[in-house]
Design a protein around this nucleic acid. Structure first.
Lengths: 190, 190
DNA sequence: GTCACAAACTAACGTTCGTTAGGCAATAGT
DNA sequence: ACTATTGCCTAACGAACGTTAGTTTGTGAC
């Protein structure tokens, strides 16, 4: 990928973040780059191409993260904390793409959509297995594994809705707080 | 609101749920109702009118729910459990609208958008106050209140992504599980 | 029977959409 | 110096968009 292509990609993602993929026109993207709409097609084959690249680049990052966690860390709490930390890091370091990954992937069509969904499911299964490991090890409460992993992922993903780069919480702090919350809950130990 | 208008509204919401508001055309809605696009304008002034009604009807339900909780329930854990239960009930009983409420409100414009955001913020503040009460009462851990309430809301809202009416969990069960998870976390008490 | 009204229709408006065709200027390789 | 390639341009395509105007149809009230 050329530098120019990366630059156009980043700018597109910025516009998508603001208006959403479906409500953003190719002309909006071009305007943000101060170029003509038609010129975009020297770099991308279609508007959906931009969405596709964005979604799959993010999917790959998450795929690598879950692999890393499973390769290196041994006990379940450690694994879960690390998975959350990596997840938060990916989201915050790629905030525009992350929002598109979470919010706009539905606009993919055909085979891309199917492939994306299966990658998403694979990642979710990765998290679910960590939860399962914890239960097997006796350190997590027996619980509905699917339910628990969906709840974990939802609270992690939601940070893209309020995270600001110049806010008072950095990614590491967020990950720690989130992990504490997920592991220990709100209620004071009796 | 006439029955026919309600019917058209419900059908529109169903189409919006599938494709998203921005990607849905007035012609898509009309086709689902087996009527002509122009006929919709006997009932609604614009496509955005449908979105507006949907979002604000949902906002009102949530507004009433938080009021009810604050009027009736006294201790913080009870309040939080009830708020979650009502929230889940609203989502599951109005699944199509709920998805639009959560996902598509950004497509509102002008004053409607501002008003919607302020209603949303008010609701979030209601939840935050419940958390605050719990901390004051000494039953919740001292924590970042904003962070905690956002995390709670995110995990509750995410159920619209996977909840199926014919699934094996009903709304009450989901609310209980979610409350348990939020209050006690994943980790076994030491 | 006719009047009023609601709710649907047909037809079309002007705009915006994603995309393509074809050309022009600059740059790099030989 | 010539050629190929890259990256942008202008112009425009056909399709789809949200919406409006004006008309017809069906229904209930008097």
């Amino acid at each position: 990928m050329t530098d120019r292509k990366k630059q156009i990609l980043a700018s597109s993602q910025c516009v998508f973040k603001e208006k959403g993929y479906a409500a953003t026109s190719v002309r909006d993207i071009a305007k943000a780059l101060k170029m003509e709409p038609a010129s975009l097609y020297s770099h991308f084959s279609s508007k959906e191409d931009i969405l596709k690249i964005t979604c799959f680049e993010m999917a790959e990052k998450f795929e690598l993260a879950v692999k890393e966690v499973n390769d290196i860390y041994f006990n379940a709490e450690e694994k879960l904390r690390m998975a959350i930390q990596l997840h938060v890091a990916i989201l915050t370091e790629n905030l525009n793409s992350a929002i598109i990954f979470i919010r706009d992937w539905r606009n993919l069509t055909g085979q891309s959509l199917d492939e994306f969904i299966s990658k998403r499911n694979a990642y979710e299964m990765g998290i679910r297995e960590i939860v399962q490991t914890g239960i097997r090890e006796g350190v997590f409460n027996e619980t509905d594994k699917k339910f628990a992993s969906l709840t974990i992922l939802s609270s992690v993903n939601w940070i893209v809705e309020w995270y600001k780069e110049d806010g008072n919480l950095d990614a590491q702090e967020i990950a720690t707080k989130l992990s504490d919350f997920i592991l220990s809950g709100l209620k004071k130990a009796a």
